[in-house]
Amino acid sequence: MTTPFLSVRDLTVDFHTEDGVVHAVDGLSFDVEKGTTLGIVGESGSGKSVTNLAILGLHNPAHSRITGEITLDGDELVRAPKSQLERLRGNKVAMIFQDPLTSLSPYHSVGRQIGETFRKHTGASRKEARDRAVEMLRRVGIPHAQTRVDDYPHQFSGGMRQRVMIAMALVCDPDLLIADEPTTALDVTVQAQIIDLLKDLQQQFGTAIILITHDLGVVAGAAHEVLVMYAGRAVERGTVREVLGSPRHPYTWGLLSSMPRLHAPVDVPLVPVRGTPPSLINVPPGCPFHPRCDFQALAGPDMCRGERPELSPHRGHGDACYLTPAQKQDIFIEQIKEHL
């Protein structure tokens, strides 16, 4: 068994606030291999973004406490010094954010923003950095890259801005690209273009991608593996076919049921997941999903509010739920699948 390219083990991220300690991520483990895409899905506040900011060490150490292990290509990152993380960011690991308008500096031309990343990590001259920026803009499909390199972000459309963001993230040929809701702020046709672009670039350069989204359609189209997060924990993990085709966790069922279907009759209402996401300051004991779960009675008395279920098995298609495999299969086939 070889070590995975990125391995996250027992990651915990706590934030200290005036109201108490927020347990944003609680004992999360996952792996990402080179050339593959891991989709991380879950509601807002489930810890998706927090996890990925932790990989880059972008949390303010004054307010947060991070434990566990993050190993990238053999290097431990949680306890890594600031200078090592600075060399890593934008170079070996790059990140794309949700809203390309606010995430790009309004005060600098796109060429400069792309070029400065390149210069920082390669020591290239201004001229080389500019040439590289033009090349990157061309690679992500921006027409007239030669002249547009001097334009500012506000002069680009939303989709083009996200392309600029991607060009900036890929300028140093990173091994790992973290895309935090890269398509959420874009309209549907542009979303598809951006996803295709990411897939093309992955095929060309073998980049590992972590794709954070709450759009299961994006996951189905772009990811190889899926991690479903709830209240800072992984509740289900597997390949796209496994998790979306034969989901095992009640929360995953809920997510799938709440998705609109193109071929469903228009008068069938969408079924949202009952209740609201839990407070991360007072996470429910046991399985954090149990207050919203319709099937907790089946698992046996007080099972779900007692001990926290672990994600099992450790490899392959796993889920954190006390229902027996037979129960899960029956419920899915009899009660869930027909509504999908």
Binding site: L58, G90, N91, M95, S103, L104, K120
Partner: peptide, 15 residues
Amino acid sequence: SEDYVRTARAKGMST
């Protein structure tokens, strides 16, 4: 606390 400042840190710019 702006997004673009976070981006700058995410691409390895020094403090």
